[in-house]
């Protein structure tokens, strides 16, 4: 059942990225272009997601366990450290350069766009490099 939930949640998320046009880097770069020609759409995507997920998360987090598995797996890290800040800065730079973040990048693989395929390849190289920092 968890596997079916995974694929269905992936589909709903992917449709959300297409309908909101966040799959298109031009739209994302338009949001980051706040000082000249600004497209505020991305803020509305976040508002839309948060008005659903925030109240329901706080309502359901009191459950003993999830409906279809034995326990919740939620991060309890609280530390604000160098890794968090430097990582977020590197991510912001790459995001501002191309306009793709992991969700839209992977979703756009379905379109067989050579640029997005190249981006995803190098993003996975980045994941791999980061996994070596943990060792």
């Amino acid at each position: 059942m968890n596997k079916i939930v995974s694929i269905i949640c992936g589909i709903i998320f992917g449709i959300g990225l297409v309908i909101s046009e966040m799959i298109n880097p031009e739209k994302v770069l338009g949001f980051l272009n706040i000082f000249s020609e600004w497209d505020p759409s991305l803020a509305f995507v976040m508002i839309g997601a948060l008005i659903v997920s925030t109240p329901l998360f706080h309502m359901f987090k009191k459950m003993d366990k999830p409906l279809l598995c034995s326990n919740f797996l939620i991060s309890n890290v609280k530390e604000i450290d160098k890794r968090l800040i430097i990582g977020s800065m590197l991510f912001g730079a790459g995001w501002g350069l191309v306009g793709l973040c992991p969700g839209p990048a992977i979703t756009s693989l379905a379109l067989f766009n050579i640029s997005s395929i190249a981006f995803v390849f190098w993003m996975f190289i980045g994941f791999y490099i980061a996994s070596k920092f943990n060792a």
Binding site: F13, L17, F44, S53
Partner: peptide, 29 residues
Amino acid sequence: NIINFTPISALTGGLLIGVSVILFFILNG
């Protein structure tokens, strides 16, 4: 200047993303 602003589709897509997040949380934890 504000250009290309698509609030309705942005909000609709966002709601779907929120639904995906919360279903994954309630069902898969």
